[in-house]
Design a binder for these strands. Sequence first.
DNA 1: ACCTACCTGGCC
DNA 2: GGCCAGGTAGGT
Length: 279
Amino acid sequence: MPELPEVETVVRDLRPEVAGRTIVAVPHAASSVIRYPAPEVLAALLPGGSFDQVRRQGKYILCGLSRDGGPAGESLIVHLGMTGHLEVCDAAAPERPHTHLRARLDDGRELRFADARRFGRVMYGDPATLSAARLIPRLGVEPLGEEFTPARLDAVLRGTTRMLKAALLDQRGIAGLGNIYVDEICHRAGVRPTRRCPRLTRRERAALHAAVISVLQAAIRNRGSTIDDYRDLWNAKGSHQEELRVYGRGGSSCMRCGEVLRRTVVAGRGTTYCPACQR
DNA sequence: ACCTACCTGGCC
DNA sequence: GGCCAGGTAGGT
């Protein structure tokens, strides 16, 4: 499932591929995945736009487009959802199943978006306008940015009485964490995902802050985790699934203390933790 | 602050 | 043949 490390990997790979390239045609744009504007409108608006930046906000991919040299302030925005996939391929390459958007580039290649489960989304417009229209939610702090200080995490956790896992999954607090990395972060910090935020000690909050950063950085170094569907721009798997300590390991022994890992449901999500070394 | 719907491939 | 996976929006 694409979370921050997977999206960051896609963005880093995509940036040099499309930088300076101009969209010359949109041979295919359909389905509910295209949220705004309507697919045929989006198909009419994209041609003529040149990619001048590719960046990430939380799990969102924002591709800034300029026109006739001047910046248009509009972006092609993609969220991968659960099974969304971006690829840059030859225009003659066969279309993968569930392809919802194809944008022909001026070098003869195509940027394509496919998504079997259609939890992903594609939008086009000025990010501020889309935000105001609530097509993009207001996102919290970037966990790998310099604003993500221990004090900032404290502020996020202090504002709620929910369980730790629910707070970490909330994109309005910290942007980019999902089910896999939240479980990994809690394990590394030695804190149970079921703990109520107000009950966390200063020491635990500091451990969580460090764990957020180290877990995400390690996952990015390994180009993300391929549990099931995730593939990068070139259809290659990430390798961080081999480094996961708790996700998907319920019933196996803890790699830190040897206790049997417990699987439960927290915040409506499958959750794995070590009952011995996570308190 | 929690619960359900959305959606489909893969598995029992 | 039915259930589960889960990021997010929307409803209660």
